[in-house]
């Protein structure tokens, strides 16, 4: 039971990282109908900024994170304006491939800053634990869950109650009609990239807390892809649930697979989300909460 509780907490913690990333993917997808493969690069860019802001500039952690989020949001804006805006109206596949190009380019620059070393991450939690009953809970996982809950609540409120959020929902519903109502669709595109950038930076920070980041960290962000597909590409709530599901499955498989099914090999946990992805898609081609595409001819 202790093992189960511990891996559940770990899964929910890591799952909230995936949820943040998945939210970014979904927000971009809903407004522009494009999957941004540049998300991993934005994530490591944000994490690297935190490393340098706390290290070289000596900012306290809680100041560095918002600054990094703002800067990454700015990076998202630049990417959207320079690489994505010229492609409005082109096939989505082409635009998705462009984001792969953007991802590679940004990561080269980020890797230049990171160098070949492993960068230690200073965070207020480190690897400190908290004892609940007989379960040792790492504080960082609690921090991740709490922050993600707050951010998700804030985002939902923003979409539901603010004028800009309403504009974003209208654009997601029908771009032309939104344009006819006086909504600046270009602004919505830019804003969704900025939000996705900020979320990615936050996720990157959490990836680093209690550990370190290096040139391979970006691969973690790809686990948000099973999360959005499981949840459904166009469902904001689905992204959060998908992220948590992926995190929990990964943690549980990591705990039990080595003893229960050793024939699956070492580190099977890392790829287990993709197995779940295949199964879910075979049963429900549009994910658990996605809206099926209806084609009219």
């Amino acid at each position: 039971m202790t093992r189960f509780g511990q891996s559940l907490i770990q899964g929910l913690g890591n799952g909230s990282i995936y949820a943040l990333l998945a939210l970014g993917f979904v927000i971009i997808y809903k407004s522009t109908l494009v999957i941004s493969f540049a998300q991993p690069a934005l994530m490591v860019a944000g994490a690297t900024m935190v490393v340098f802001l706390t290290g070289s500039f000596g900012l306290p952690f809680f100041a560095a994170v918002p600054v990094a989020m703002l800067l990454t949001a700015l990076l998202g804006l630049i990417v959207e304006r320079s690489a994505l805006r010229p492609m409005v109206g082109k096939p989505v596949f082409v635009v998705a491939i462009i984001t792969i190009g953007v991802d590679i380019t940004i990561r080269v620059v980020v890797n230049r800053f990171l160098g070949n070393t492993i960068r230690n991450f200073t965070s207020p939690w480190g690897l400190d634990t908290l004892r609940v009953g007989d379960v040792f809970v790492q504080q960082r996982f609690l921090a991740m869950m709490l922050t993600t809950a707050v951010v998700v609540a804030a985002l939902f409120a923003f979409f539901k109650y603010s004028r800009t959020g309403l504009a974003m929902r209208a654009t997601a519903f029908d771009q032309e009609t939104a344009l006819a109502q006086g909504i600046s669709v270009g602004m919505v595109f830019a804003l969704s990239w900025a939000i996705a950038g900020a979320l990615a930076a936050l996720a990157g920070t959490f990836v680093g807390t209690g550990g370190s980041i290096d040139q391979q960290t970006w691969i973690i962000a790809l686990k948000a892809l099973p999360a959005i597909i499981i949840g459904g590409l166009d469902s904001v709530g689905g992204a959060v649930i998908g992220g948590l599901v992926v995190g929990v499955i990964e943690a549980l498989v990591g705990t039990y697979q080595p003893t229960a099914a050793p024939w699956l090999g070492n580190n099977f946990a890392v790829v287990s989300p993709y197995v779940v992805l295949l199964i879910v898609l075979l049963l429900r081609p549009y994910g658990l909460f996605g809206t099926p595409e209806v084609e009219r001819v």
Binding site: I35, F93, L222, L225, P226, I229, N267, L278
Partner: peptide, 16 residues
């Protein structure tokens, strides 16, 4: 894009 992501999953499973 659903297909693109599934085939991406295939690469990770294959690598494993």
């Amino acid at each position: 894009l659903y297909l693109a992501i599934v085939t991406l999953g295939l690469v990770f499973l294959g690598e494993h």
